[in-house]
Amino acid sequence: MPEPILKIEGLDAHYRDFQALYGVSAQVDQGEVVAIIGANGAGKTTLMRSVAGLLKNRPEAIRWKGQAIGRLRADQVAALGIALVPEGRLLFPSLSVEENLIIGGQIGRKGPWSLDTVYRLFPILKERRNQQSTSLSGGQQQMVAIGRALMSNPELILMDEISLGLAPVIIRQIYEALPGIVGEGMAAVIVEQDIAKALSVTSRVYCLQEGRVALQGLSATLSREEISRAYFGM
């Protein structure tokens, strides 16, 4: 067994007085694709933001290749090779499509991803490169958000509800691009509402319920009943 690259242990996350995560433990191996599922408000986004450094936690609660990173700033976490595709895309409206991508690569990590390779993955973005990012359709904006994260050549990419609010045909298009993304040995954590979709593209799954890990297992072997019990708490 290789050591996991990301190891979360006993993570409690708070928004002021409100506790959103209770002792969450999870791990991601190198090159592995993991799903996080759970109902609205279960804490999926909180977990993503904690790993990315947008929420401050106990340092040892999150380890990256053994290093305690729970308290690092987001820019420091990004430099280590973790990128977040945030829920709601959150592009920079003052920047053009291409500038959104360039700024994603600002950290200067070496790797396969560059403007060229992102444009090859999503050719439509090349046509729209000089437009304001807000003038794009939702699906195209999501492509920019993914491309922006890839531009930092991360070893782990966190994708928070990349299909939220998109038409099914667009969702399929984006998920078809996924193997080309994680194929290069990059690990991924995918937060997804569509459970069937989440199970089909991942090897392992964690189900969060009210801030706790209610279920974990192999995507291929977990039963429907187990999952809906963990999902809805019934």
């Binding site: 700033r73 987001a74 990128a83 959150l90 003052s94 920047l95 700024i103």
Partner: peptide, 23 residues
């Protein structure tokens, strides 16, 4: 310039700019 881009991005969304490695 890269600095101007960093200024605009930070002005737009401070936390997401931080994710891009901009402190």
């Amino acid at each position: 310039t890269a600095l101007g881009r960093a200024f605009r991005a930070t002005s737009d969304r401070q936390d997401i700019a931080q994710l891009m490695g901009l402190n």
